[in-house]
Each structure stands twice: as structure tokens, then as C-alpha cells.
Design a protein around this nucleic acid. Structure first.
Lengths: 243, 243
DNA sequence: CCAAAAGTGTTTTGGGTACACCCATGA
DNA sequence: TCATGGGTGTACCCAAAACACTTTTGG
């Protein structure tokens, strides 16, 4: 654990192994407690928030770099990942936030520091099982934590735009089995799946219509009753059919 | 004209003005003679084909860079442009095609030549009015010419993948008014618009259903009769309503 | 008059939604 | 028995597609 953090310590990093000028930013979605959440970093002693990101090794595929970044932040492999846009506005050339971060963390640095260049950001969104994730901060950040999408703070640079576009893409792909398959546990109740869809779309759905639509898609299989211990009838559990 | 070419001569270019490691590739669609076409470069004396591309100036927005590249190749401003994917496979690190090109064009070059690095490619697709375009080759290429999408040659690196993904995006956006508005002349017949849709989708469409659907969209306005000189009734002309 | 072009009427299909209503069940 | 969960039947709306048919019109 502390080994992992040491590994990420910025002053120990050989920045030369990365392609200059290109970064990867990730919008990592999780679902818990009936709320859709996103992993957000908070930089030490600065009050600055950002999406987790990273860089591309010179001999590494773009998609592999994204997988690696995801693994560093969540500990997970085999994550559902989707590139959705590349951001290259000049807003990204404002180095004041990163200078603030470095001033609070590095003994010394100069204007040529790797992190103080203009980056074009290739952005991915990821869907992960909340329960399996242990958020890991990097050495420049205190925390990497889940934030409810309705309580997102102001993020550095254009990261709020990035989040917004990621959420738009998630809405568009609501009918893909990937959404439920990756954001929920292996088994779940119909009410949980409906709650997830409602969180993503930001509106309530009709229960019976939702039920029929989902079952007609053919991706779901009912597997048994849940024992809740509560009064009244207990809900069935479902899982996605793996083809 | 020759001034413009001189300006593009590769040995005259200050490569240092561009961000390293990132390129822009464009899939430029045009429609003519009932066929969907794409602008393709042929490198001098090599038999190698590629999509037109360019680089990003250090103080230039990603989208502005794409607009500039488009203008260099087509002479047009105000082009309909859409970023659709960023490519970063290791296939892109194969420098043999570019070495072949340079060997046939430059007096001398070494392994550190700007064009012999690994590029991540941010890709755009563009829709242009065939009639308004004058394709302009760069100094490394003989020709920049329209090629029927059904007769595309094998392109360098992953450029065939890039084209394929661009075409997929074009199919998905078939119901956007942008498709007809940008690929056809200001006025056109219903048969021409239907032919365009058929070329993009690669299948025939029912005339009456197409007519009804298009008119119900509310974007089209009928403006008058076309004088064909042929026998039989002449078709009406339509144009898109600008809001 | 002929054939191309334009337009209408009707039907079917399929997805999505809304709602009423019934069945099952666990404490 | 009753509140919750699960499920069906029906109806409605809408976009898209398929097809038959009529009207218009330039030469």
C-alpha cells in the first residue's frame, strides 16, 4: 500500500518515459446507495479538485495507457472503458492550478517541469463495480474519492466540461447491457437496476414498462429470490447473461 | 497557387512550431456523380496513399488546427467538422512508409526528423460541397484527389481503420440536417438527396417513405422547378431552411 | 400520349410509455 | 392480512417502412 504510493511519488517519476503534450483523463463512474458517483482527486493543501489522469508511455498503446491509469486508481483490471472525446482548448494551457499544486508538494521545481506544459487530453469514461474499488490517490493528492454527481465541486481547467460530456455519453449508451453489467454487482434486483437507470437519466421511469423492456432485451436472467429479512415478499435476483 | 505550395514545402517548415507526438487526420467526404467520395493523398513516387493530415500549433486550439488543415487541403472555410476518435495503436509507430516518402523527397534527413516520431492521431470527419473544393496536395504528395469510397486503395498505417470509423459515424448521423446541407449544393432535387442517403447507407431506400420522412423533418423547403431540357416532368428544387 | 416526378392514402411494424389490474409471499 | 414485489393485458403514440394509387407536366 505505502509501496504503491511511493511508486507514484511525483519526484521519483521518470517523466521522460511519457509522450509529451498528451494526457489521459478518466471519468470513472460507480453506483452506490442509489446514487451515481464519480471518482475525484483532491490535491493536497490546495482545495483544488480534478479528474484522475495520467500519461502515455512511449511504447504503450493509448488504450493500454488508459487501462493502466484506471488500475492505478481503482486496483481493477478488466474495466469497461470507452474513449469518448479529445479536449484541446487553450483553457488547458492555464498552468496556475498545477503550479499551486507543485508549490505545495515539491521541494523545488522550475518552469520546465513536465506537468507545466500544454496537454491535449484524450478522455475516457469507465464503469466500475463500486464495491470492488479501493480508490488510490497519487502523491500529489490527499484523496481519491467518490463524489455524488449532483454534488460535484468546481474542477480545475476544463474538467467539468469533460465530466459533462462523459455523462452525456453514458446517457446515450443507457440501452447497452454494459451499463448494468459493469456498474452493479453480479446479481441485483430489478429495482436496483431501475434505480441505476433513473440516476443516469436523471428522471423517474415507469416500473412495469421498464421491467418489460429490460426482459425483452434478452440480456437478463432471473436466478432466485433474495432473502431480505424484511417483511413482505422478497425480490428476485437477476444477472446478465454472458454470451 | 505556387506560392501556396511553396508555403507547404516540407523543408521550409519550422517543425518546432508544432506540438510533438500529436497529429490530426481528416476524412473529408464529398458527393458527386451519385457517389460518395473521400479526399486521399498520394505521396510522390511511392505508390503510398494516406488521409490528409497536419499538426497542431503550440498556441492553437485542437479544433482550430483541424479547420486550418481543412482549409489547406480544400481552400474552404466554414466547413462542417466533427471530431470522432483518437487513434493511438502501436501500428502508428511504423516509420517505414514515412521514410520511403522522405527518401524520395528530401535531399537529406535523419532519424530525428519530426515526421519520424510516434504520433497519436486526433481524427475528424468533414462534409464539403464537392463543387466548391479544389484539392491541394502538400509538397510531399503528387496529388490530393477524390476517391470513390468503394474504390479506396490500401492506405498507410491505420488510415483504413480511421476511414472506416469515420464512415460509421457518418451513417449514424444520417438524420442530421448537416449531412445534406453540407454535402450538396445549395439547391438540389429530392432524388439527389435520396441518392446521397443511399450512398452513405449503402442500401436503397423507398422513395415515398423517404420523401415523407424528409419533409416531416421540417428542414427542407421547396423552391421551384428545375429546367432539365429533358423530356417529361422536371423535378422541384429544394433547399435547407437556415434558422 | 408517355414516362418521369410528385404526392397521398392506407397499412403494418416496432419501440416506448402509461395505466389498470392481478398474483405471490413473508412475517 | 397487507404491504411490497413481480407480472400481464391492453391501449396509445409515434416514427419508419411498404405498397398501391393518383396527379402533374414537359416534350
Amino acid at each position: 500500500m505505502s509501496l504503491k504510493k511511493e511508486h507514484l511519488k511525483s519526484s521519483n517519476i521518470d517523466w521522460n518515459q511519457f509522450m509529451p503534450g498528451i494526457s489521459i483523463d478518466c471519468v470513472i463512474f460507480g453506483y452506490h446507495d442509489k446514487e451515481l458517483k464519480v471518482l475525484v482527486l483532491e490535491y493536497k493543501k490546495t482545495g483544488l479538485f480534478a479528474l484522475p489522469g495520467g500519461f502515455i508511455k512511449k511504447d504503450e498503446t493509448l488504450d493500454d495507457a488508459a487501462k493502466r491509469v484506471l488500475k492505478e486508481r481503482t486496483g481493477l483490471s478488466n474495466i469497461y472503458l470507452n474513449q469518448f472525446h479529445t479536449f484541446g482548448s487553450l483553457k488547458r494551457s492555464d498552468h496556475t492550478p498545477m503550479k499551486t499544486v507543485l508549490e505545495n508538494n515539491e521541494a523545488s521545481f522550475d518552469e520546465t517541469h513536465f506537468l507545466l506544459q500544454r496537454f491535449i487530453s484524450v478522455s475516457y469514461f469507465a464503469l466500475v463495480d463500486f464495491k470492488k474499488v479501493e480508490p488510490v490517490a497519487d502523491s500529489l493528492s490527499d484523496t481519491c474519492q467518490w463524489i455524488d454527481i449532483n454534488e460535484l465541486p468546481s474542477l480545475i481547467l476544463d474538467h467539468n466540461d469533460i465530466y459533462q460530456k462523459a455523462h452525456d455519453h453514458l446517457k446515450k449508451s443507457i440501452n447497452s447491457e454494459a451499463v448494468g453489467l459493469n456498474l452493479l454487482s453480479k446479481t441485483f434486483t430489478m429495482a436496483e437496476l431501475q434505480g441505476l437507470h433513473e440516476s443516469i437519466l436523471g428522471k423517474e421511469l415507469n416500473r412495469t414498462s421498464f421491467h418489460r423492456k429490460i426482459m425483452l432485451s434478452g440480456h437478463l436472467k432471473r436466478i432466485g429470490k433474495k432473502k431480505t429479512g424484511k417483511a413482505h415478499r422478497s425480490p428476485y435476483l437477476y444477472k446478465f447473461i454472458q454470451q
